[in-house]
Structures are given as C-alpha cells and as structure tokens.
Design a protein around this nucleic acid. Structure first.
Length: 407
DNA sequence: AAACCGGGGCC
DNA sequence: GGCCCAGGTTT
C-alpha cells in the first residue's frame, strides 16, 4: 500500500461512505446520523487515493495517453464523444499524422478535415474542431488556452471536454462527468434519479469536483494527480464498473465502500431515461454510370452531413417503388433501371434501408439544384462520403481501385 | 427538457 | 433488436 494511505482512518472507510454527504452538497443526512464532515472528507480522500493508485497499475496503454499536448488530448476527447475507444484509435493516429499542430488544422481545406473524420459520424464535431482551431489562432495566438472558461468557450467543447482537457493535459483540478463517471458515482453512492438532469446531475458534478480536489490536495500522490484521478473514474467505468448487471466488482479497488454493491443492486444504477424508439427509414438511391464515372451530389449547407458526397438519393415511404422517384428526379426512364441489393445502415435510432438502382445512361442534366460530379473510381476513394454511401462506393470500387462491372 | 446528430460496436 | 458509447448543440 502506498505510504499516504497508512494514516487515514481506513477502518472507518467502508462505513463512512454509506452515509456520507459532503459540505459542498448541502445534504442533511450526514448530521442526522452523527457523521462529521471531517470523516466524510477523509473517506473521500481515501477513495480518491485508491482510485488513483489503481489507475497507475491498470490503465490501458492508449495512444493519446502517451502525450500531454493539449491539442492531441483535445482531438482524442472530441473523437471519443459518443464513440468507443477501439473505433477511435486508428482515426486519432491518422489525424495526428496529417494535422499534428493546431495551425495545421486551422489552415487545412475543410474537405480534408471531413475526409479524416469520415466514418466517425456526428460530423459537426469535425467542423467545430476546425472552427475552434481558427479561434485559437485568432484569440490565443495559436496556443491552446489554459483557462477552463476559455477552453469551455470554444465551439464543440462542453463542460465534460473542457474538464477533460484541463485535467488530463494541464493537470488542473477540474471535474469531469461522462457516461462512465455517471455509472461509477451513481453506483458508489447509490444515487437515484435521472443522472442527466437536475438535481442529480448537479450533485454528480459536485461529487466529481470533490474527488478531483481531494486528489489535488493529496500531495503525496505525486505528479499529475488530477489527470490520474479523473482518468481513473473513466477507466474504472470502462473496464470494471461496466454497464449491465455484471460489473467486475471482484477487481474493483473501491468495492468495499460501494453502496450499490452492498445492496447487491449494481444493475439499478444509473437510472437512465427510456430510449427513443427505433424507427425505419427508406431511401431510393441511384447509381448512374457513364464512361467509367459515377454521378455524385454534394450535400448542401442547409442539409445534415453538409460537405459530404453521396450517390443521388431521396427518402421514400416503406413500400414506394424506387424507380418512380429516381426517374422523376433524374430524368431517366423507369425501364432503364436495374436492381441492386438493398443496403442496410444503422444510425442512432434509425434503421435505414437504401433501395439501390443502377443505370448506365447519361441523362440530359436536369439536376440544376446543387453541386454534381462525375467521379472516377479513384475520386470515389478520395472524396469524403458518409458511412452508408462509402459502403455503396466499396461495392463499385475494388481494393485495387478498379471499377467493377455491374449488370 | 428534449430532440437531434442520418456512427459504430457489442451481445 | 436493444443497448451503450470519454457529448455538444439546437430548439
């Protein structure tokens, strides 16, 4: 055990957190059962220390943990918003290779930024990254700001991401609260209610702040204490205190003090609101080939996925024949279309089906609206396309860049 | 407070 | 198919 843990009242620790409340939370249970604020803060310090030391031994070796460059940490945090670690790893490495500095991002062509983000989804994240990079150049002389409020004011950076950058890259005692931390804290303290809305959300932020401040005060924990305690909460949530009814409490460093585990009710927390129901959507998609090129359309500024190229497509009803809308929109007679396999694609709450039709025909261009392009097989690979249309593109273009013959 | 973002992985 | 993920922004 580390030298710092010895003096703390470890015999009180498991009991203390069962009824703990903290001065900053303004709760009353504490005084009712006669626990002192000093005991509460001491148990908090023990918890912070156990988590930090556990992280030192059990942290995964993730690529962005090998740097303290705020820019690199920032990119990783934004990529990790709603996106899992294993998905992010190759994207982060590629991004840092191509755009290693803030200035590189600010000055890059927007289509290059989108191409680097292709497949990660939630593409406003990429657009906001570049907007923020430009702001850092203009307002902060090209240096990533250190003030948490200045970080928070950048586009695409909310309270979580600002706290993550400030603590992980700059070792400041700023709290973080994400899905992992919500799960860890609601279980540890058996906190009921919706953790995403007040009042529980506010209490969780206060608890997260109390933990990082406890680590900050514990000088014996050594360097980068704020970075380590905050990452320990997320790491524990990702690898031990996992969703569902079977977290790995046997290897949890704070299991003895966990109230949900004491009750055997780990699966009850957090109390997340019901999911939005899943709905199906249907699209008629046309692949129009002409002299080895394929017709693409650029999503316009008013549309979702603006800046991405895609095969011309229109949303239809579940049973509308796709030839009808394709012929009307593209001026190609209905009998010129041949059927291709449907393409299924999932995105958040949508189950999307693209009904694909192929035509080898050059229509008189009545597609006046928007930006169109006859793309070669090589261009298909280099343009930014959303995931569903990238799948479609891979049907046409093999791994050697050869155009594939379709009947 | 709720909807949206038209991504991906896991079971 | 359901659920979750190192969320932020818009309405």
């Amino acid at each position: 055990m580390g030298p710092g843990l010895g003096g703390l009242s470890s015999q009180n620790w498991p009991q203390a957190d069962r009824h703990v409340s903290f001065r900053s939370m303004g709760l009353q249970r504490c005084s009712k059962i006669g626990k002192s604020v000093q005991d509460a803060e001491r148990s908090l310090a023990v918890t912070a220390e156990l988590l930090t030391l556990w992280f030192d031994k059990n942290a995964r070796d993730l690529p962005w943990r090998r740097t303290q460059d705020p820019y690199a940490v920032w990119i990783s945090e934004v990529m990790l918003q709603q996106t899992q670690v294993q998905t992010v790893i190759p994207y982060w490495g590629r991004w840092m290779d191509h755009l290693p500095r803030i200035r590189d991002l600010a000055e890059a062509p927007p289509e290059r930024v989108l191409k680097l983000w292709e497949g990660l989804g939630y593409y406003s994240r990429a657009r906001n990254l570049q907007r923020a990079a430009c702001q850092i150049l203009e307002k902060h002389n090209g240096v990533f700001p250190q003030d948490p409020d200045a970080i928070l004011s950048l586009p695409g950076i909310g309270r979580y991401t600002a706290g993550a950058i400030a603590s992980i890259a700059l070792d400041q005692p700023e709290p973080i609260l994400d899905g992992n931390v919500i799960r860890v804290l609601t279980r540890f303290f058996a906190l009921e209610g919706d953790p995403k809305v007040r009042p529980l959300n506010q209490r969780l932020w206060e608890l997260a702040a109390a933990l990082v401040e406890a680590a900050y005060s514990a000088e014996h924990l050594g360097d980068r204490r704020c970075a380590r305690i905050n990452q320990s909460l997320m790491e524990l949530g990702a690898t031990v205190c996992t969703p569902g009814g079977q977290p790995a409490c046997g290897v949890c460093p704070v299991a003895e003090a966990c109230e949900a585990r004491r009750r055997g009710q780990q699966e009850r927390f957090p109390e997340l609101p019901p999911r939005v129901p899943i709905t199906g959507r249907f699209f008629a998609t046309g692949i129009i080939a002409h002299q080895g090129r394929y017709l693409l359309r650029l999503r316009e500024d008013t549309e979702v996925n603006r800046g991405f190229w895609e095969f011309p497509n229109w949303e239809t009803g579940p049973s509308d024949p796709p030839e009808a809308v394709l012929s009307e929109q593209l001026g190609i007679p209905p009998n010129r279309w041949s059927s291709q396999p449907d393409l299924r694609h999932h995105i958040t709450r949508y189950r999307m089906t693209q009904r694909v039709r192929y035509a080898s025909f050059l229509p008189s261009p009545n597609w006046a609206k928007g930006t169109w392009l006859w793309a070669t097989a090589t261009e298909l690979e280099s343009l930014a396309m959303t995931a569903a249309h990238r799948k479609l593109s891979l049907r046409l273009v093999g791994t050697f860049g050869e155009s594939r013959q379709l009947s």
